[in-house]
Design a protein around this nucleic acid. Sequence first.
RNA 1: GGACAGUUGGGUGAGUUGGCUGAAACCACAUCCCUGCUAAGGAUGCGUACUCGUAAGGGUACCGAGGGUUCGAAUCCCUCACUGUCCGCCA
Length: 414
Amino acid sequence: MIDLKYLQNNFNEASAKLQKKGVDSETLENLQNLFKRLKGANAKLEAAKAEQNSMSKLFGQYMREGKDITELKAKVDANKEAMVPLQEAAREAEEALYAVALAVPNFPDDSVPAGTDEEDNVELRKVLEPRVFDFAPKEHWALAEENGWIDFERGVKLAKSRFSVLRGEAARMERALINFFLDTNAQKGFEELCVPFMNNAQMLQGTGQLPKFEEDLFKIEEEDLYLIPTAEVPLTNMYNDEILLADQLPVLMTGYTPCFRKEAGSAGRDTRGMIRQHQFDKVEMVAIAHPDKSDDIFEMMVQNASDILAALGLPHRVVELCGGDLGFSAARTIDLEVWLPGQNKYREISSISNTRDFQSRRAKIRFKDGKKNRLVHTLNGSALAVGRTLIAIMENYQNEDGSIAIPEVLKKYL
RNA sequence: GGACAGUUGGGUGAGUUGGCUGAAACCACAUCCCUGCUAAGGAUGCGUACUCGUAAGGGUACCGAGGGUUCGAAUCCCUCACUGUCCGCCA
């Protein structure tokens, strides 16, 4: 959630920032008014409560002293009744405010390039030259079929469309990649965690998936539980509603989890192959950081993900997202796009974001800064999406006969 | 799944015949004082959030969560969650 006090005191600045993310100023004006309304309603209610409390104290005193309480009782009853509409007003004001506030995206950093969609993203650099093929490179689904690696039909039979089954060598490769990623992240100082793949609503709200993006989540019937869409949710919320000590920072965490997404709104996109699935494996990095240190950690996380791709010999480019393409919670995001020769395109394989205090305000993750409690910064990034890495290896390491070579660094994991 | 017990501040743990308890005591922690020798003693402070105020200092809420009874609830009632123990079941 954005800082409402900041919005109130720096309306024009805040409004300009959020324009980059396509939020109109009417929404913000509305938000500002709702905030004022809540404060006003609370002030009235609290004054009435203070009155009630002090009269109640007197009441007890009178009882002890044996004084007559009929007059006091009448006053206190009248006040109680007068409080009912105030209570109602405060409740309504709060509901109205949060309905809007929780759906407003984070402020983008000033450095974020303006733009409306991915066309306006800015390429920062390319890493590794794409290989020159002396034959026409195939797409991963063709290779998968030739090698018997991915069983799309049976994935659909077992579940539904956008599910698939990895077989044999491919299944082992998936496992090898997970291990390689986790080991590499651990070397960079990330603690490995194995977390629940279902989280409750409060956690999903903490990281920003709820309430706005419920339609993209798989919910467990009859339970307050959702399948996680990314390990960012459990890892970041490890410290939900906690106050850390300054010397505990930064907390660096990594974990492998499957990720579950309904892909609502992506109907028809990437239906062929394994690019966009309802369930996919990912190894995630999460950092809980001191606000002054989050930029450095961000750079480290981007470098780490890029290094992993380079170690696998996968050409990729580093892209800074423009305001319009930035996710809901992110203040800044850098994507890593891997080269897919079969598709003749760069495709997203990692997304690293600094959410600054947007998630920590929702999730109440603070740290002791001297006497005061301050919100931490939270960062997350994939290192890496496993299925897409497998695809990238298939397409980049393919031979003319359809066989696929194994990247050197993975050999010890197979 | 069934039965019983419990859920209090950073920790341990009082308080459950409703008001004087936002919460004793102890530990931990912080600052200061004393003293000096391998550590001890003393004083004070020390929950979170929102809110009013330049500040000093007020106010409101929170004793697992939500609701109820009452002038007033950590204390009574209801629902739910979680923890523990026993039974059942099971990878």
